[in-house]
Amino acid sequence: MTTTRLTVSPLTSQTWDDFETVMGTNGGARGCWCMHWRLSIDEWMEGKGDGNKAHMRKLATGSPSPGVVGYLETEPIAWCAFGNRADYPRMQRSPLLKPIDDEPVTSLSCLLIKKGHRREGLLPELIRAVCDYLTGTAEIRTLEAYPVDPLGGRQAGADNAMTGIASAFRTVGFHEVARPRRDRPVMRYSLR
Rank of each mutant, 00 (worst) to 15 (best):
V8C: 03
S107I: 12
G83V: 07
E144K: 11
A166K: 07
K98W: 04
A54H: 04
P95G: 07
H175F: 11
A145S: 14
T12S: 14
T15H: 09
E139I: 04
C32R: 09
W33K: 00
A129G: 06
R118L: 09
M23Y: 03
R57P: 12
L97P: 13
M23W: 00
R85M: 15
A138D: 13
E103S: 11
W33E: 08
K98S: 15
V148Q: 04
H117F: 15
L6I: 15
E43H: 01
Q14N: 14
L126C: 09
T106D: 13
L134E: 15
T61N: 09
R119S: 13
A166V: 11
T12A: 15
D159G: 12
Q155P: 04
M45E: 12
M162Q: 04
R90C: 03
R141C: 05
P124T: 07
G173T: 10
P10W: 02
L108Y: 07
V22D: 09
M91V: 11
L151Q: 13
A168Y: 08
M56R: 01
E139N: 11
P95R: 05
R85L: 13
E75Q: 15
V105A: 14
L112Q: 03
G28I: 04
M1D: 09
S63F: 02
G83K: 12
S190C: 10
C110N: 12
T106N: 10
V177M: 06
V69H: 02
C110P: 12
T25E: 10
P76M: 08
I113Y: 01
F82T: 15
T4C: 09
